[in-house]
Simulated assay, not measured.
Amino acid sequence: MASSLKSSKELVVFLGKSMIAFLESLIFTIIPKPRKNVAGEIVLITGAGSGLGRLLALRFARLGSVLVLWDINKEGNEETCRMVREAGATRVYAYTCDCSQRENIYRVAEQVKKEVGDVSILINNAGVVTGKNFLDCPDELIEKALDVNFKAHLWTYKSFLPAMIANEHGHLVCISSSAGLVGINKLADYCASKFAAFGFAESVFMETIVQKLKGIKTTIVCPFFIKTGMFEGCSTARPFLLPLLEPEYVADKIVDGILTDKVYLNVPKFISFVLFLKSILPVKMAVLTADYMGAFNVMDSFVGKNKKN
């Protein structure tokens, strides 16, 4: 009897909290959520030497953040550093880091802690793509995709999350992909790495909730393909439904998501509809629908190279 009453009480509490969460979500859909101030925050961006990483750095520079830029391309990273200073940043630090190498990440992370301080916003953006059929993809390129797109997240979290927990203040940002939600032609290795990055970020988010870690925020970003050098030559089958995205638009959405502490960010929102169809339709119908809308067969004109963003 006591066990039954306890279960009933837990169910009522669960339903009550769910209703509150739903109403809160509904309110913030109608009324824009307040944006937090990130002036003075130490923001580390991997893959900052070009593309989306560079655009994110420029936006945080204008918001008054301290920038820590990581990239394997020293020249590109230094160019971003120059642009960020011109955009108004007064404290910018550029580090050459190979995010496919765990020990390299740990070494550079220690430099950052000593020379800059505790990172409060970590943006795992670095990525590579091959664009080949799975059986045509060399082993070393598959390993590279997993190392950069997924494993690097493990090592950066291990490096910077402890200080965030100690300070009760921090924000973890995972740049995954729509390819981390839906399987895509010629992207088996890329999808595997992005699915893993998504699952890892979501699991750590759940840990922060269960362990009641205060002040630790998470944002998991899943954009469709972006018009950067990483996806040069890529086309979408249904551009009127899922067009290739402008980098500036995606950067704005990501920054807005971070400033409003949004946990899940699909860009465009139409991605969420594709996932909904995938979950409710029979497998064959779901595949046909997603293929028609351009969610699966987008790589027909992609030039297969090992590219970085």
Rank of each mutant, 00 (worst) to 15 (best):
S3I: 00
S3D: 14
S4Y: 11
S4A: 08
L5R: 13
K6W: 05
K6S: 04
K6V: 00
S8Y: 02
S8P: 02
S8G: 08
K9Y: 07
K9S: 07
E10D: 14
L11F: 15
A21G: 13
P32W: 14
P34V: 10
R35F: 12
R35M: 11
K36E: 14
K36H: 10
G49K: 08
S50T: 09
G51S: 01
A61K: 02
R62T: 10
G64W: 00
L67E: 10
V68Q: 01
V68A: 05
D71K: 07
I72E: 04
N73I: 09
N77M: 05
N77V: 09
N77P: 09
E79I: 09
T80N: 07
A89L: 10
V92H: 10
Y93N: 11
Y93M: 05
A94E: 14
C97M: 13
D98A: 03
S100F: 06
Q101F: 06
R102D: 12
E103T: 11
N104T: 12
N104P: 07
I105R: 12
A109E: 08
Q111P: 07
V112N: 01
K114E: 15
V119N: 03
T130D: 10
K132Y: 13
L135I: 15
D136E: 12
I142R: 08
E143I: 00
N149T: 03
F150W: 08
F150V: 01
K151W: 09
H153K: 00
F160T: 03
L161P: 01
L161T: 11
M164S: 04
M164W: 15
M164K: 07
I165C: 01
V173W: 05
S176N: 00
S177A: 00
G183M: 00
A188T: 06
C191T: 02
K194W: 04
A196N: 03
G199L: 03
F200P: 00
A201P: 01
V204D: 03
M206T: 12
K214Y: 12
T218N: 08
C222Y: 05
F224E: 02
I226K: 00
T228N: 06
M230T: 07
M230W: 01
E232K: 08
E232S: 01
S235Y: 05
T236S: 10
A237G: 13
P239S: 02
L245H: 02
P247D: 08
V250Q: 04
I254T: 06
D256N: 14
D256F: 11
I258C: 02
I258V: 06
I258F: 05
L259Y: 09
K262S: 15
V267F: 03
F270A: 15
F273A: 14
I280F: 11
V283Y: 13
K284S: 08
A286P: 02
L288H: 08
A290L: 00
Y292F: 11
M293S: 06
V298P: 08
V298F: 10
M299C: 08
M299W: 10
D300H: 13
K308F: 13
K308T: 14
N309F: 12
